[in-house]
Design a protein around this nucleic acid. Structure first.
Lengths: 194, 194
DNA sequence: TGTTACCGAACAAGCGCTTGCTACATCGAG
DNA sequence: CTCGATGTAGCAAGCGCTTGTTCGGTAACA
C-alpha cells in the first residue's frame, strides 16, 4: 500500500477535475500546477505535455470500461440480462472515473486532435460493438422489438446513460443502483404503464 | 427577400459552424474571418467581441426553441400528445439550428462564463419547466408510470433527444419524422415488444 | 460629404513549454 | 558508519508564439 499517493496520480486527479469542469482547452497548466501546489514548469518532470495528461486520464478510463464490458458479455448470454449488466457496469465505471467520463463525453473534438487518438478510437469501437451485438442479438431472438434500427436504440440508450454523469448524484433516498434499475426499466418497458 | 444575405448573418453562420465542429475556445477569430473572406479586425465592425457572436447564436436559438415549446403547450392538453409534440418540435428546431444546438449541448461550461448568461439561464429554465410540467401532468393523470421520478424521465429523454444532433442525419429511407416517431415510441412503449 | 465596410498593422496578455539550477533522498563502495 | 555519486522533484525565469482586440487610414457609395 502506498502511504503517500503517487505524485503523478495526484496531478492526474486535479487535472481531470479541472478538465471536466472547465473544459480541456480552457484549463491552463498553471491552474493545474497551482491545484497541486507546485509551479507549472514542474509538471513537465512527470508529463511530457498537457496532452500527455489528457491521454493518460482517458486511456485509464477507457481501458477500465472495455475490461468491464468484456467480462459482462463473457459471463452472461441472455440479451436482456446483458443489457441490464451493461447499464449497471457503465454506471459503476462512471462512479470510479466521474471526471474522465465527463471529459470523454464533453470534449470529443479536443480528443480527436490528440496524437494517441488511435487507441481511443479502437476502444470506442469496441464499446460500440458490444452494445450493437447485445441489442442485435436481442432483436434476432425476439426479446427486443425489431421495428427500430438497433443503431438508433443504441444511441438513445448510450446518450441517456452516459450523460447522466452531468446531472445524477446518488443520495440516500435514490442510490446509483436504483437509478440504474429505473433507466433499464424505462428503456425496456417504456413510460406508459403496462 | 434580401438579395445579398446580411453580412452579420453570414458571419454568424460561419462562426456557428466552426464553434460546433471545433469548440468555441478552439476556434480563433482569424479562422472565422478567413471563412467569411475578411481580416480578423474587420469582424469587430459587426460585433464587439467573440463572445458577442456566441451570445447572438445561442440567443436566437433559445428564443426560437422557447416559442416553439410555448405554442405546443398552448395548443395541446393531453400529456401523451404534448410529449410527442415536444419531441417533434425539438427536432424541427435542431433542423433549423443544427450548429447552435451542438454548441449549446457541447459547450455548456463555456456558455456559463458568458456575460449574457442570465438570458440563457432563464430560457433554459423555461424549457426544463415545460418538460417537467408535461411529464408531471402525465404521471398525475395516470398515463405515465409513477414509480420513476419525473426529473429522471425528463433527463433521460432530454439527453437522448438533444444528443441526436451529434449523430443523426436524415436520409431518404429514414427521415427525421420517422426518427422522431421511433424516439417517442421507444420511450412510451419500451424496447420489449408488448 | 458622410457613412459603411474593410484593410493593415500593431498591441498587451496569456499560452505551453524549456532551461539552468538547487535541495534532498537513496545507496553502494571504502 | 561515512561519503561521494546518482536520481528525483521542484523553483525561477523567460522564450516563442498565439490570442482577442484596437485603431488610423481608405476606397466605394449614397
Amino acid at each position: 500500500m502506498a502511504e503517500t499517493p503517487d505524485r503523478r496520480t495526484v496531478i492526474l486527479d486535479k487535472a481531470a477535475g479541472l478538465f471536466a469542469s472547465k473544459g480541456i482547452a480552457a484549463t491552463t497548466v498553471r491552474e493545474i500546477a497551482e491545484a497541486v501546489g507546485i509551479l507549472s514548469g514542474s509538471l513537465y518532470h512527470h508529463f511530457t505535455s498537457k496532452d500527455d495528461m489528457v491521454d493518460a486520464i482517458v486511456r485509464t478510463y477507457l481501458d477500465d470500461l472495455v475490461s468491464v464490458y468484456t467480462e459482462i458479455v463473457a459471463q452472461e448470454s441472455d440479451p436482456r440480462k446483458q443489457l441490464t449488466a451493461l447499464v449497471h457496469g457503465s454506471l459503476s465505471v462512471i462512479e470510479a472515473h466521474p471526471h474522465a467520463t465527463e471529459i470523454y463525453q464533453n470534449s470529443g473534438n479536443y480528443l480527436s486532435s490528440l496524437v494517441g487518438y488511435e487507441h481511443i478510437k479502437i476502444n470506442a469501437a469496441k464499446v460500440q460493438k458490444t452494445w450493437l451485438d447485445v441489442i442485435g442479438n436481442g432483436v434476432v431472438t425476439g426479446v427486443f422489438r425489431d421495428d427500430i434500427p438497433p443503431r438508433v436504440l443504441y444511441r438513445l440508450i448510450r446518450d441517456a446513460l452516459w450523460l447522466s454523469v452531468r446531472w445524477f448524484k446518488p443520495t440516500h433516498q435514490y442510490s446509483m443502483k436504483k437509478f440504474a434499475d429505473d433507466l433499464v426499466s424505462t428503456f425496456l418497458d417504456g413510460i406508459v404503464p403496462r
